[in-house]
Amino acid sequence: MRGRPIGALNEARIRKKEENVNIVACVKQVPDTEAQIKVKADGSGIEEGGIKWVMNPYDEYGVEEALRLKEKKGGEVTVVSLGPARVIETIRTALAMGADKGIHIQDAAFDNADAYTTALALAAAIKPLNADIIFCGQRAIDGDQGQVGAILADMLDIPHVAVVTKLEYTDGAIKATRPIEGAQILIEAKLPCLITAQKGLNEPRYASLPGIMKAKKKPVDVKNAASLGVTPSVNMKVVKFTPPPARAAGKIIGGDDPALKAKELARLLREEAKVI
């Protein structure tokens, strides 16, 4: 894929058939934000029993944006996910929201995939689709790395804009708003490109009942490392999981008078904690 003028080809295609945008949304299945995370006794991972699995919230914004773009310009949305058998539920959720087809990359060889290997698998699955625009969440709320989108864009040799809160489509390009510390920047990028979605981009829809029924019949292509031609090479390893450091028991400032309690709190912050 490197060195191929894929950008020029797709731009020409978009100009010719503007009404047909080829869209990809990458999704990851993660524990719900309300989930308690318990570390296994041997520190080798987290206890997965009892966890409710959901679509990564940031990926939902990506799927929603993909669907809105399709509704506006026409085209097709392919949802791609990597993970074990249970991940099909998350793919079906995206299909029920309105995506057209799915690709499920499922292979034990990817069990401990790091961001680079994940992107390698996604790139192999997405490359033949010749996507005009790819959406990812700005980070997954399990690993909290926020790497896969940018690595994937690099492997496909297309630009990316990360952590996007607003998106406009112009001819063969997009304009994306990205908040940074103390400013908002507006970035123009040529298509094809990859966007990582941030909260605020849109309000994701719920799957409708007819949507859920239809989703059952939509095609999901299952791929593995061999069919993708990818050799997993995991460079980043989590060698040990630990619970968060325990906090010492706190001090409740007693009394009935709010003013006195406030005064005592200010004193403690100044003299004991030395933080103000």
Partner: peptide, 14 residues
Amino acid sequence: PMYAGKCFGEVTIS
């Protein structure tokens, strides 16, 4: 931190 700090990971890179 992982899971927004619900647990921590010790990480090496080969």
